[in-house]
Amino acid sequence: MIDFKNIRKSFGEREVLKGITFSVPEGQILFILGTSGTGKSVLLKTIVGLLKPSSGEVFINDREISCLSEREMFPVRRMCGMVFQQPALFDSLSIFENVAFGLRKHQPELDHAQLSARVKECLALVNLSGIEDKLPQAISYGMQKRVSLARTVAVSPRILLFDEPTTGLDPVTTNSINHLILELSRKLKTTSLVVSHDMQCALDIADHILVLDKGEIVAQGPPQTLKQSTHPLVQDFLREALNAETAH
């Protein structure tokens, strides 16, 4: 269970989050939608302590984590896995070493054979095999995104965080990533938070949707409830989703 209580975050004079309060029950997929610059990624980063809220509290399983120091955050981060907007692969390491990176930290007792088996298993989960020896720059952007996903799930996190995982991808890869999110979340029984602009995808796979505008929650609820929302921004998103569906 993840709880946000009255989260505020300012950068200088600019207040990006203005008192956000919501909860994510264990095992659910929550989509956070909103236009660019509304604080979606900032909100996600407060869970793993990459950003500290200016005020308010973040709880993971009833433990307050927003007050923890950088060192105290290490064990908390081991529970979470984050897929960034960019693939963020370590470009000096091979795909194998990228996926094995977290495993070496989390499970130092694994020998090479076990490590290798786990890396291959995770790459197979994202439909990538036989690219272990390649460097990140030798594979396509879409493949890098999937490797990033494999690296994240390799350490068996209980919470998965996706920061615009399909940005910059073609519709086919976008679809496959969206299905991977659903598949992995169900298979690994994780709690997932997905920051996105893609209402159609949210309607398809989310258990709960939250819409942010100018740092505030303007609508939230299960997909069916959200479809009834009269808020102009939600209406815009729904119209866009409908257009995209018609185009396909």
Partner: peptide, 13 residues
């Protein structure tokens, strides 16, 4: 390119 954030998120320093 968020590689350093990725290291932190993987529980490493």
């Amino acid at each position: 390119t968020e590689q350093i954030d990725a290291i932190r998120c993987l529980g490493a320093n």
